[in-house]
């Protein structure tokens, strides 16, 4: 899905320190992977993250829940 400037949604994951879980910390809108990396790093600057990554929302495929933010990514014919 795109908007005025051709932006899509990216989920942002980060871990504070070695040994800690990778946690979903938020989301940003960006027109592509390169700017998604920049926007995520600049937006979620409340910690000195050991690791951060972004995932296009369209790439998250739900396993057990048929509703929620990723429901539209369910493989066709899922019941």
């Amino acid at each position: 899905m795109t908007w005025g400037l051709g932006e899509g949604v990216y989920e942002v994951f980060a871990r504070k320190n070695r040994g800690e879980p990778l946690r979903h910390i938020g989301y940003i809108d960006a027109p592509g992977d390169e700017l998604a990396r920049v926007y995520a790093w600049k937006t979620y600057d409340e910690e000195n993250w050991f690791e951060m990554c972004v995932v296009p929302r369209r790439a998250v495929i739900p396993v057990n829940r048929l509703e929620g933010p990723w429901a539209r990514n369910l493989p066709e014919g899922t019941e």
């Binding site: 908007w3 949604v9 940003i28 809108d29 600049k42 937006t43």
Partner: peptide
């Protein structure tokens, strides 16, 4: 100022997930 803009973005994004257009709200 940078923080405030990020907070606005996060709240508009939550609205967008509810089917409210951020584009319409801001512009």
């Amino acid at each position: 100022i940078q923080d405030e803009l990020a907070h606005a973005n996060i709240a508009y994004r939550l609205l967008e997930d509810m089917g409210v257009s951020k584009e319409q709200l801001v512009y």
